[in-house]
Amino acid sequence: MRNLFRIYLEKPELAGIALLAVLVAVFELRSGGTFLSPDNLRGILGLLPEVGLVAIGVTVLMICGEFDLSVGSVFALMPMVAAELMERNIGFLPAILAGFAVCAAIGLLNGFITLRFAIPSFITTLGMLFIARSLTVVISGGFPPVLPDDIPSWLFTQFIGPGGLIRMSFLWFVAIALLASALLSLTNVGNWIKSTGGFLEAAAAMGIPVNGVKMGCFLLSSLLAGFAGLIQVLRLASPLPSIGEGLELQAVAAAVIGGTALTGGVGTVLGAIVGALLIRVIDNGLVLTQVDANWFKFAVGALTIFAVVANSWLRRAARSIRIEAG
């Protein structure tokens, strides 16, 4: 039992992976082999990068002890800004850079307000959720811009791989996931992020620039949300001002299902991905097994509550274990 707890504390995403395996097996059986067919996998893997990228940013931010509820709105705002600029013929790259600049400004503003006025980031970013969504609608003017034909969408949407199983966006997603994962576990900055969320006073006492670390994580969360939004808009070939609604909560759900602690300090990028994948698998699996699709949110909700209850129980149990001096 004791070893099980230690493994759990070091690899909090393992429970999610186990659940994922079970769900995949169940859906595969119930759907008579359709679930793991190339066509269906293409659907799941094509959508995963969008929610996955948002989940990665939100998870890293949660590990350092803060929240970002504005990601769903930033998801819509970034491509809207970029598309409006593209329509004015300033070119693909400048338009995208401008979009990212808006994301960066929002992320830094989230961090600045939260830290400067010492208020919960939950509140700051809840406010930003409304502000960014409103800006998106205002900018679109009610008429979404039309994307130019000559933009290199293929960089993100092209089907590639054996049998065209994945999209280019999947490669971007994997690369960013690997980088974020390496940042957390292999670099000193990862150490600072975990310590800032794990025990702020201790980190500050050891000279960690805790406010700088938090600003960086707010920034990352916003940039990834904007990038994910861009990918979705290029896939749909149309920037709608309503995309990404409710995405912030899916991202938080993905993070906690993957073992990220709401109190900070604990979590992994892999966990976030597993959480995001679980949500996608449930969404898709329910449809394939001909369950009324309206049960989707019910299942995600139940899973989220179950994951947090299980996590906190395991953590309490683990805390009561001490290493004996030997």
Binding site: N188, N191, S195, G198, A202, A203, G207, G265
Partner: peptide, 28 residues
């Protein structure tokens, strides 16, 4: 000490030895 981190990571918190790094940021 940060309870959610290992002894080794706590010992070197803020003074991590790096294999490669620029501007004080790099691989542990």
């Amino acid at each position: 000490m940060v309870p959610t981190m290992s002894i080794a990571r706590n010992l070197f918190l803020g003074r991590e030895p790096l294999r490669i790094g620029i501007f004080g940021v790099g691989l542990l």
